[in-house]
Amino acid sequence: MKAIPAILLALLLIVSLVHGGSYSSQHRESIDAPPSWRFPLGTDDLGRDRFVRLLDATRISVLFAGAAAFAATLLASLAGGIAGYTGGWFDHMVVRTIDVLLSLPSLFLLLVTRALMPLNISPVLSLLVTYALMAAMGWLSPARVIRAGVRSFFDSEYVLQARAEGCSEARILVRHILPNLRPILLAQFWTSVPVFILTEASLGFLGLSAGEPFPTWGSLLHELQNPLMARPEAFAPIVAIALCVCCFKRITPWRVSQI
């Protein structure tokens, strides 16, 4: 029962990796066609197979969100780790910056920064830029958690014990801090992935994600800006997103989600 979304998502991902269709090939004879055997989800107004585009969007959105989450966690562990380790003015500055940026609406920040990117860049570049920006915004709250973790580890009794035994700083870092930090980093990574998927969806809906002809879950949602005119098939990406995010929520334990 609980595995159903995971199985569906895995199926979708596997099919998206092996199917033969192309997201950009147009079928001029059947434009805006309803669902049929040939086109399970119909075609869009340019005559492109919606199902093939959804499959490709699944692959792109999940993989890129994963990559962005990795980058964000890396950034976060650098900033949070150094801040927590050094303390002092650097720590103070990092915390203050994170506080200020986190208190701003993140969608607004993304909107502003995304708008700063040039208009006439290639679709690949726009895809990269979108996810890079999300990673650049997404390290804030993981960094806070990691910093708190590092602080508490250094204040702990076992580090005191290690110091009392004459361990070097480097050895303490490698033997005592990093192993304890691992679950925190993993949790931050796994919580970041669905956050990025959802953010990209909202950005794409506003027309600020990857450019045509690349399909991402978000850019597929762009069609829904006129929801009353849209065909029912156009809502399929929402189902895919919900499935996927649901799976990730299952993977991550309850308490690690941070506001």
């Binding site: 809906f205 997103i241 499935l243």
Partner: peptide
Amino acid sequence: SVAALSLPSAALAVLVFV
């Protein structure tokens, strides 16, 4: 709550509009 959390805010907006 998990159901509501799994939808992007834009999708929620679309659903409410529909």
